[in-house]
Design a protein around this nucleic acid. Sequence first.
DNA 1: TCTGGGCACTTACTCGGTTCAGTAAGGAAA
DNA 2: TTTCCTTACTGAACCGAGTAAGTGCCCAGA
Lengths: 355, 355
Amino acid sequence: MKRPTIADVAKAAGVSKGAVSYALNGQPGVSDTTRRRILAAAETLGFRANSAARALAGAPSNVVGLTLHRPAKTLGVEPFFMELVSGLEAELSTHSYALLLQMVSGSDQEIAVYQRWWSDRSVDGVLVCDVRDGDPRIEALTRMGLPAVVIGPPAASGTLASIWSDDGVSLVEAVEYLAALGHRRIARVGGLPELSHTAIRTQTFTRLAEQLQLQTVTVCTDYTGEDGARATRRLLSSPQRPTALIYDNDIMAIAGLAVAAEMGLTVPADLSIIAWDDSPICRLVHPPLTALTRDISAYGTHAARLLLAAIDGKPVTDVHDEPAHLSPRGSTAAPPADAQPSRQAPRRRATRQAA
Amino acid sequence: MKRPTIADVAKAAGVSKGAVSYALNGQPGVSDTTRRRILAAAETLGFRANSAARALAGAPSNVVGLTLHRPAKTLGVEPFFMELVSGLEAELSTHSYALLLQMVSGSDQEIAVYQRWWSDRSVDGVLVCDVRDGDPRIEALTRMGLPAVVIGPPAASGTLASIWSDDGVSLVEAVEYLAALGHRRIARVGGLPELSHTAIRTQTFTRLAEQLQLQTVTVCTDYTGEDGARATRRLLSSPQRPTALIYDNDIMAIAGLAVAAEMGLTVPADLSIIAWDDSPICRLVHPPLTALTRDISAYGTHAARLLLAAIDGKPVTDVHDEPAHLSPRGSTAAPPADAQPSRQAPRRRATRQAA
DNA sequence: TCTGGGCACTTACTCGGTTCAGTAAGGAAA
DNA sequence: TTTCCTTACTGAACCGAGTAAGTGCCCAGA
């Protein structure tokens, strides 16, 4: 009825608790024949070590933690995280590691969670998402000595190992594609401006504008479809209406598609749209969205692999994953021949930042 | 540097470890003045009980578990689960409970996870989703004595408490709305046929068809957009093409919208579409989708509340949450005046079940 | 023959809580 | 005053693992 303990295995194998512990953990101190006998006894009894007891004794917990800071509203729609999680799980489960997920509402709380986890030894390491410049979590984790891997640009990850796909390269690919189609006025609907990867995208975009002699503008949002729609409306109402829009996630791109239709613009004839990240929905809308595709699940798998190495104490370095590549679909085409300032009721000019 | 233990608090307050434990857990055995002194000492030291030690000593873990069985691919796009989780978290966190999430690949594995959790005392209770008729998990949980709440129809939950919103009522509302608009040929793109709530929807739909003298058909899918698109194509290619489609989730409805456009049908003029569940995306597509709206987050909150009561040993009964109600939007209208058999290339008739 | 060393295993203590049994002090009843 | 009970606390066992230190044994070498 009750679950067998290490003492039961010891009795069954005719040895002491200590011997069982050594045998099960593959440590020296027992002969091969005894080890086999112990393992057999453990097997027949269906023994599985009690995780609380292991944690208390300071053994690794075989759990890695992930905290999510974004508002629940965003998470509900963002395919990114669930795909990342499924990739993480894939790698972790093959190593008998579990993933502990915790929603938080701020950096302070997040650091407190890390501290509790680490002093409880309820996780062996953590994954860090959505880094900002000068993110306090990086320093806190380094100080604690909690193994961690940053999913984000290495520049912002301090001495922690990081994994990331170069957003700059991807943005160049998207913009050069639009420029080759003949677009000269390109706007970008960006994500949260304080996130490091948003900053990198914005910088690259600005630099490209100079190089390619484009008129560009970036508007920042909170990643929700509503905010993406608002930003789109403002951009499309500006006197020098852009002929192409690049969105920092796919949800906003879909929202933008709807706004275009609502304003009587045909995609791609009047307006080209590119989505960053390519969930199945991008292929389902009409027209299907040209998107920057990356294998988020694989990204998660690689992140997990890196973290497990760090937990093992192996030397780890920053890893560059494959950058997102453009999947051209029906939402992009050459700009309209008469790409002139819009005739619509002019509103105030879009600014570089927005709520 | 090191985290304070109960012994440190005891020393600071000048009492024994036992007294501290009683004081912190609100148990009798210490005077009010001593209790206050102990609490103050714990506060200044920043004491937080080590969860592994508590679990080992058999104390409640203040964690509830949730296993998810659906393929990762589905989870990545399904807003339902993330919304449910955010609602769960909202209630749990106010009671200092955490949520342990585990992806599984089958009922057997799921039951094994429950067993490990319960004998480890790493959860105090679990939430059960996606019940099937004769679901082995129900019996296993009952036998184990692990507190559990079923998120699903009470008919399938055995003696376990359940929470659910009556899908039958909602389906009636949707179908009567379509019938009132004049639709006579209505098809439904359902979810996984083995899930109990799918069965209930299908039964209700069939019954309604008789009552209202409608021509109906249900096609089952795996909830993915791809499968929804496939089902839509088949239904719209049938000789007696339906004039309205009801989808069991919003992802498939959006996919259906794209298929309609691809086949040259205008929504809602040629075809009406209703989505079950109403994530923000439904409002973002064009036309915005008429949807069966329910507050999934609140649903989660109520489920958590019920489970906490069950864990407390309070008597719990099945709870009926508010059913989903129709939010009419732009994707539904009266059927075309010439609602005749389609002139398109006839294919084989849609069957009741599909891959 | 005695010593030393290594192997194989046991013993005992540790982690940080909970909880039961025991005890001293104080008050009320006999 | 003695007895008994309650209150308020202490001490120690216990949960189930890990692990350092200790023990006995066998064998090799002097």
